[in-house]
């Protein structure tokens, strides 16, 4: 099985290199430091959430509500700061905590009431987005202080701030999933929840923590998002779950659970972002790139299923 994993990631890495070569021939603007760093900036929010989504999908779950949590936290950030008059740093912390609570609520529905994750998070996708719309009443919040934009528009040592945040989170996620008991519990819960329970693994607690983390990191992504675009709107992050899930699945994480790595997710993210950027530079408009992402998502799973059938049989 681990041999298969290595192979999927190798295929992906080769694909990524090929894509980079082709794209750099397509446009001389593609392979510049400025462009690549900017792509990192654009990728950070989806990337952060994809890290948590890797845990979610490895545990045989799915979280469709991440885009809505992002929208809700963005709105709450504005409300806490502007309407309640809280200091902005406190509003940021409270926003991220609210995201964590939203994720915890998902986890409780899934573990306590045994609602399938797909349905639970489909319901909260509507609920959280609805709360964001209801609270904001379609008003946007602007006028954040200058220092706040460091997070989304600033640089540290020449690299966008959020890329540093993303790299740190990615390193932590890779260690936790690959090397810790929590990571082993995640794989076990995803591969066979019943067997994991009988082996004394706290499956419910693991899953509860994973969904809470998914909410927290969506909240963090929301703060970065608001800082990057300098405004708050209730439709932020609509459809984000698709990008996140595509990146994770593209990275070789099995949608049936029990298999996947953070490295794979990183490769999937980079391949997706390179294609988006390359297509944009080649003159394909934003909506055309959504089509390509959809096609890639379906094609990857077909290929990965065929390969697996071959290795299994």
């Amino acid at each position: 099985m681990s041999r298969y994993l290595v192979r999927h990631e190798t295929i992906l890495a080769v694909l990524l290199v090929l894509a980079l070569i082709v794209l750099s021939f397509q446009s001389d603007r593609f392979f510049t430091v400025d462009n690549l760093l900017n792509q990192g900036r654009l990728m950070a929010e989806v990337g952060l959430i994809a890290l948590a989504m890797t845990f979610v999908i490895v545990s045989a779950g799915i979280d469709l509500s991440v885009g809505s949590i992002l929208g809700l936290v963005a709105i709450l950030l504005g409300v806490f700061w502007q309407n309640l008059g809280l200091p902005l740093p406190l509003a940021m912390v409270l926003g991220v905590v609210a995201g964590g609570l939203a994720g915890l609520f998902n986890g409780i529905i899934i573990t306590r009431f045994r609602v399938p994750p797909l349905i639970a998070t489909l319901a909260t996708l509507a609920l959280y987005r609805g709360l964001a719309e209801g609270i904001s009443q379609a008003r946007s919040v602007r006028g954040y202080p200058e220092w706040f934009f460091v997070l989304g528009q600033g640089e540290v040592l020449g690299v966008p701030t959020q890329v540093w945040i993303f790299l740190v989170c990615a390193a932590v996620a890779a260690v936790v999933l690959g090397l810790s008991t929590f990571g082993r519990a995640t794989y076990a819960a995803g591969a066979n929840a019943v067997a994991a329970r009988f082996s004394g693994i706290p499956v419910d607690r693991t899953i509860l923590l994973i969904y809470t983390a998914s909410g927290l990191i969506s909240g963090l992504a929301a703060v970065i998002f608001v800082s990057r675009v300098s405004t708050t709107r209730s439709d932020m992050g609509t459809g984000l779950e698709l990008d996140v899930i595509t990146a994770v699945v593209l990275g070789g994480t099995s949608i049936f659970g029990g298999r996947g790595t953070i490295i794979g997710t990183l490769l999937g993210l980079m391949l997706m972002q390179a294609l988006k950027n390359g297509l944009a530079l080649a003159g394909v408009k934003g909506d055309g790139t959504i089509v390509v992402i959809g096609l890639i998502l379906i094609a990857t799973i077909i290929i990965s299923n065929l390969v697996r059938r071959e290795t299994d049989g």
Partner: peptide, 21 residues
């Protein structure tokens, strides 16, 4: 192809929507 319906239709969602727009 034994792909979960959620994945296929998520993909179709973006293909149809992106294609239409």
């Amino acid at each position: 192809f034994r792909i979960p319906s959620i994945v296929v239709t998520l993909g179709m969602l973006s293909i149809l929507k992106g294609g239409l727009i």
